[in-house]
Structure formats: C-alpha cells, structure tokens
C-alpha cells in the first residue's frame, strides 16, 4: 500500500532516494505507530478476551510496531535483501535461543510466588 504511495505522492521526485518512501508516507506511518501505542495502553487498562487474550493482543501489536519501524523507517522493505538476512539472523537467533532457554526453566508455566 505504502509502496504505491511512494510513487503517487507529490514529494516523490524530491524525496525518493534508492526507492525510499516520501515524507508523507513517513508521517502516515508515525501516526499509525502512535495510534497503536494508544491502543496498547488502553488494552493494559481494559482487558479484552481475558488475561491471555490481552497478552496476545499486546504482543501482536508490539510485533506489528516493530516490523513497521524496521520495514519503513529502517528501509528494510526497500533496501538490498542482504540487510534483511543479516538482521533476520540476529532476530531469529535471539527469539529462538531465549524462548528455548525460558521454556527450559518453565518460565511460561510456573505458579507465582505468594506475596
């Protein structure tokens, strides 16, 4: 969608560099991110779908925000695939390694301490 905006915006001729989006696209993306942050904060106060449903929604929103910044502001969507692969290696190693580590220690299924 934004890739189409890239070619349609009036600023494209000035701003486009190596296929980067226009400033208008950046502003739209930032507004979307701000909106997502607002929804996250609301969700933390007003649970939707119980505790597990809220956690799932918060994690989904965080992943969407993360991916949006990486793809648009860091230009991974438009840059050479080498950069995507390099970053993906770090992300996959980190998430995979630490999920296994935390699962091994039963972090996701342990009862809370009585306070």
């Amino acid at each position: 969608m934004a890739a189409v905006d890239t070619h349609n915006d009036a600023h494209t001729d000035d701003a486009a560099h190596a296929g980067h989006p226009s400033e208008l696209v950046y502003i739209k993306v930032a507004l979307g991110l701000a909106l997502a942050t607002g929804v996250e904060v609301l969700l933390s106060y007003h649970k939707v779908g119980g505790e597990h449903g809220t956690v799932a929604l918060l994690l989904i929103l965080a992943v969407v925000k993360f991916a949006t910044v990486v793809m648009y502001f860091m230009h991974l969507k438009f840059d050479h695939p080498y950069f995507r692969r390099l970053f993906a290696i770090g992300i996959v190693l980190a998430v995979g390694c630490y999920c296994v580590y935390l699962s091994t220690l039963h972090v996701f299924h342990r009862p809370p301490l009585p306070h």
Partner: peptide, 15 residues
C-alpha cells in the same frame, strides 16, 4: 552491512 550485522548482534544482547 557492518551496522546491520552489529544490530543483529544487539538483538542477542537485549534478548
């Protein structure tokens, strides 16, 4: 390439 490699390694640090 160096910066992306560095950022990939930073994922492991913050992870």
């Amino acid at each position: 390439i160096a910066m992306w490699g560095f950022l990939g390694s930073e994922c492991l640090l913050f992870g």
